[in-house]
Design a protein around this nucleic acid. Structure first.
Lengths: 213, 213
DNA sequence: ATAAAATACGAAGGAACCTTCGCATTTGCG
DNA sequence: CGCAAATGCGAAGGTTCCTTCGTATTTTAT
């Protein structure tokens, strides 16, 4: 009995892997519906029956592939991590640009996606416990962090190791929490968000300069 | 029939004002218990029966003075706002220190209280809708903002009005979201948090300098 | 074609809560 | 003391939601 790669035995491990085309579609439909419910109706109205309805399937079917409600949220969170991580990799790893420009670009991109997906992210944050202990989260975090250090070292070569670590944390915190804060406000225009991203980049890079001397 | 000052007719308005000593105590006990439950057991376990139990009273009594569960949360949030606002007023309004030092002090103080009350704040955020539309929130916000502008103008006199507004937003955002991010991590020591506060102050003030020239 | 495996369904069990209401107890006051 | 108002109580009605399970349908493979 050849088994597909499993998701481990976390409490969110898929109960059963879809083997036929229809069930694969069903899982996709559920995940899409979950995003819609979460971003349009909010965390409070996110329940299994509603998600199943919006996906055009029955609750029973949902529970064939997701062991519980949390598992759906976890899958969504996981997807976000992977996408964000990939985005950062592609920007910070782009050798054709200078290190400072890459740091800037990363902030811009991050603010942009954060703004586009603000409702989803907010609802995810509100409905889910933070899945930070998950191995996937940790792996992605390590990958991104290594790349970030490399970029920072290039941008500020004279920094000592502890300074570098601190700068890395500060960068990530600036990017993460300020973006969340700024883009939370749905009334902000795209241009506004871009202006903010630049201001944050300015602020961080100016600070980096003072440390680099 | 002399009526005590009411809390308006928001959906969280107190159902009845305590008139005797025992009921005043009861309300206090409930609020204290609510804080304990929220910060020690988290948002998910915050329910009316548990809060009443922890306060040593019955649910029925709780509902004599709070129209619903949200009202308890609202009262806690309100208290947080008032305390934070008072703290900022006292620091930013302290005429014996220079403007930049006051901005620094405010960040430090904010990080500190944020760190001390992190579990409560996190749980409040997770369990309550954001009560930002409340008149009390708006009033406090305006008061703090006016004082912040005055301080910023003193610290960076050459800034144009739009620059000033933007700097004010950036300052508030830095303080608020970075503090939340940094102090979220319970493993951080007090000294660590203080270091972060200083770094954020450095970062913001350095940025302010570049704009002020 | 036909049996076995995979999928889909949704009613219903059951848990967790919010809130009310009728009655018991305590306090203020003449 | 004795009455009225204030306060306190907690069982129980009602709601919402998570999850299971027996059954029906569809697909796969022989």
């Amino acid at each position: 009995m050849p088994s597909r790669p499993t998701r481990g035995k976390s409490p969110f491990a898929a109960r059963k892997q879809p083997r036929q085309q229809r069930s694969t579609k069903l899982v996709d439909a559920i995940l899409e519906a979950a995003v819609r419910v979460l971003s349009r109706e909010g965390a409070a109205k996110f329940n299994t029956v509603r998600v199943a309805e919006r996906a055009g399937v029955s609750v029973g079917s949902l529970y064939q592939y997701f062991p519980n409600k949390q598992a759906i949220l976890f899958r969504l969170q996981e997807k976000e991590w992977l996408e964000t991580s990939a985005l950062m990799q592609s920007i910070l790893g782009d050798g054709t640009r200078g290190a400072k420009q890459r740091l800037r670009d990363a902030i811009s991109a991050f603010f942009r996606t954060e703004h586009e997906e603000a409702p989803l992210r907010r609802a995810l944050g509100a409905s889910a416990p933070l899945f930070v202990d998950s191995p996937i989260a940790k792996a992605q975090h390590r990958r991104s962090q290594r790349l970030l250090y490399r970029t920072l070292r290039e941008a500020a070569p004279t920094l000592t190791r502890p300074q570098l670590v601190f700068a890395g944390e500060l960068y990530a915190a600036t990017m993460g929490s300020l973006a969340a804060h700024v883009t939370d406000d749905a009334t902000r225009s795209r241009a506004d968000v871009e202006r903010w991203a630049q201001a944050c980049a300015d602020m961080f890079l100016a600070h980096l300069e003072t440390r680099n001397r």
